Simulated assay, not measured.
Amino acid sequence: MPLPTWFMAIYLIATSSKGVSAMVISRQLGISYKTAWFLCHRIRQLLADDDCTLKGIVEVDETYIGGKRRRDAKSKRDSDDDQPKGRGGSRKMMALTAVERDGKAKARKGRTHSERAIAGVVFYWLDRDAVLVTDELPAYRWIGKRFPAHLRVNHSRGEWSRRDPLAVACAHTNSVESFNATIKRAISGVRHWFSIKHADRYVHKATSRIVAGAQTIKIETLNVKG
């Protein structure tokens, strides 16, 4: 491909707040869909910040991504093993996300919200001197003991934000929940469907660059090949 084609694709991806689909890239640059798909994945990988460690006050949360199927029908495009069951038995992909307040973000797919699964990712992403902020999920209790401070908000009791004069920061997960909402809007509004097989790529592709005020947030995925 000519070098100007790469530059135009980089511009379109970098300036789209919720991402741009390969079909749109194909139509606007006059290239085939397969070429556009190849191009988009390479550019998203180029934007990844693999060496970043989240510091300061970091909010961590898990979310489930996927549309609603009629009568709980199985997808014909994914095998049953690629469709983990989310909470309530819904077949949605779980994504674990972590966001620095006024800083960067990381996310990756997961199959369960168990303590062991979450701990391995959180310990890899976060600096050990960071302040962890989460909701009331029991899996975070043991994880939070490994950090200097762990602030929790109890959503089941209608608590969304809490100011404690003895705490190092205000307890809330608004930043990470806004980040998760942006991922969902990008997938449902831009791509409409994605293969769980390539979920890490698509989560990264959907929100590799989110501008929040004057701060640019990047999303990082693990084990992304080619």
Score class of each variant (00 low, 15 high):
Val168Asp: 03
Pro2Ser: 13
Ala73Asn: 11
Asn174Leu: 09
Gly110Pro: 03
Ala22Glu: 01
Thr5Pro: 02
His155Met: 11
Val168Ser: 15
Thr207Gly: 15
Ala105Tyr: 09
Leu126Thr: 03
Gly19Val: 03
Thr216Ala: 13
Pro148Thr: 04
Arg146Phe: 07
Arg87Ala: 14
Ala130Leu: 04
Val131Asn: 07
Ser16Pro: 00
Arg42Leu: 02
Ala149Cys: 08
Gly213Lys: 00
Thr53Gln: 12
Gly226Gln: 02
Asp82Ser: 14
Arg116Phe: 04
Phe7Ile: 12
Lys55Asp: 04
Phe38Met: 08
Arg185Pro: 10
Lys68Gln: 13
Ser79His: 03
Asn180Asp: 14
Asn223Asp: 05
Glu136Ser: 13
Asp102Val: 12
Ala9His: 05
Lys109Trp: 00
His198Leu: 07
Arg146Lys: 15
Ile196Leu: 10
Ala36Met: 08
Arg101Met: 09
Arg111Tyr: 02
Thr53Trp: 03
Tyr202Ile: 14
Ile43Glu: 01
Ala169Pro: 00
Arg69Ser: 14
Phe147Trp: 05
Gly189Thr: 09
Cys52Phe: 11
Ala14Asp: 09
Ala36Pro: 04
Gly66Arg: 00
Tyr202Asn: 09
Gly66Lys: 00
Ala105Asp: 11
Asp51Cys: 10
Ser26Phe: 01
Phe38Lys: 06
Lys109Cys: 12
Val58Cys: 08
Lys34Ala: 13
Ile43Met: 01
Val211Ser: 08
Glu62Thr: 08
Pro2Val: 07
Lys225Ile: 15
Val121Tyr: 01
Ala107Asp: 03
Met93Lys: 09
Gln45Ile: 00
Arg69Tyr: 02
Thr63Ile: 06
Gly226Met: 07
Ala14Glu: 10
Phe179Thr: 14
Ala107Ile: 14
Ala14Lys: 08
Asp49Lys: 06
Arg201Pro: 00
His155Arg: 14
Leu132Tyr: 01
Tyr33Arg: 12
Glu115Ser: 11
Glu100Thr: 10
Glu220Trp: 05
Phe194Met: 10
Ser75Pro: 08
Pro84Trp: 00
Leu12His: 06
Val211His: 06
Arg185Phe: 03
Val133Ala: 07
Thr207Cys: 15
Asp200Cys: 14
Ser208Met: 12
Lys104Ser: 15
Leu47His: 02
Tyr64Asn: 03
Arg44Phe: 05
Ala199Glu: 05
Pro4His: 10
Tyr202Phe: 15
Asp50Trp: 00
Ser26Pro: 04
Arg146Ala: 15
Thr221Ile: 08
Trp6Cys: 02
Arg69Ala: 12
Lys106His: 05
Ala139Trp: 01
Asp164Phe: 02
Glu159Ser: 06
Leu12Asp: 06
Arg71Lys: 14
Val121Gly: 03
Asp135Phe: 10
Lys74Tyr: 01
Asp72Leu: 09
Asn180Lys: 00
Asp164Gly: 06
Arg116Cys: 10
Thr35Met: 05
Pro2Ile: 09
Ile13Met: 11
Tyr64Gln: 12
Leu47Ala: 10
Ala36Trp: 01
Phe7His: 07
Ala22His: 07
Asp51Glu: 12
Val168Ile: 14
Lys92Phe: 01
Arg69Val: 07
Tyr33Phe: 08
Arg152Tyr: 03
Thr5Gln: 10
Leu166Glu: 15
Pro165Gly: 03
Arg191His: 11
